[in-house]
Design a protein around this nucleic acid. Sequence first.
DNA 1: CAATTTCATTAATCTAGATTAAGAAATGAA
DNA 2: TTCATTTCTTAATCTAGATTAATGAAATTG
Lengths: 179, 179
Amino acid sequence: MENINEILNLDSNAKIKKVKKGETLQREGELTSIAFYVKKGLIRSYSIDEKGKEHIFMFASEGWVIADIESQEFDKPTELFIDCIADSEVIIFDRKCFKASNLTKDQLKQNAHLLARRTAVLQRRVIMLMSTSAKERYNKFLETYPELPNRVPQRMIASYLGITPEALSKIRGEIVKSK
Amino acid sequence: MENINEILNLDSNAKIKKVKKGETLQREGELTSIAFYVKKGLIRSYSIDEKGKEHIFMFASEGWVIADIESQEFDKPTELFIDCIADSEVIIFDRKCFKASNLTKDQLKQNAHLLARRTAVLQRRVIMLMSTSAKERYNKFLETYPELPNRVPQRMIASYLGITPEALSKIRGEIVKSK
DNA sequence: CAATTTCATTAATCTAGATTAAGAAATGAA
DNA sequence: TTCATTTCTTAATCTAGATTAATGAAATTG
């Protein structure tokens, strides 16, 4: 979604919101079709399991769109929390607008492109989770998102990788030693 | 994609192919934008890691579309093999047809819907891989795809779950005992 | 049909990463 | 600045699931 205006034009109710670090945009249990375009800052989505442990599903920095596609697609209450890792500016819009009949073909293609990208990234993530070690996933993460380690606490990177902060710390120690 | 004809109309080069159990439709390394609509039978996609181990990315039974979205989206050679678990009938078409300008809005929406479903399923899969035990994933699998265990060898279900056949066998033993 | 290959199970052993615990470093608030 | 909170690291111990190996049951093939 190269152009913010594409979204704003789509959903006349879309609005900009400034949010502080730590502020929550969406809580588990809500039934919604909302999405957030990140204009500035850094957002994350995550679930919390029965033991109270957080699992980060995705990070979204400038130019990304973040939403709980699963719950929206199956009309279920969301299982994801969405909150701000840093002070941010988001454009809140309704994903239902993609179902309207007054959309242009370009807008529809834009939406499909966005979803195809998302699918591609998730495909890679599933294959990595199934077939590679935590260390390999960490190295791939650094390669794919080289700026994120400067903006995200280590424990959140660990969570994204599917491991504990302690395990990531150990892996980092090993990497340093092996050089 | 409720209607096969939607695809056939889109891609005039689309063609039906009958394939035998075990036959390969796509090999790692190919640069392609092909997709397969499963008219009859059962198809799987999987990667093979450096140790030669298979990791099943998805199963596709009647009515599903299977393709390597990641490689196509990033114009890379595919890392996925696609082959037949049972004798099948597929419609082979080119995903590039979704980029053509002569598409109807309904076709574009259909494509977006398909991708949104895919995204939703992968979101759940990632969260499950990060936050639940192999036993929980197996139970969820049985719940979500109750017919598949009758059509897919156990070792492939294990692979889909991200565990070894031995581990799945153990889990099944535990489930039987606990009843 | 017998012969071969693939598949599922069980059990012993091993290991990556979890858990628990404690201290050090960094960050933030008053 | 000081105090409190959060974050990171290190180390000991534990455990889910991997690996290895052996056996029997199914499914395929000629």
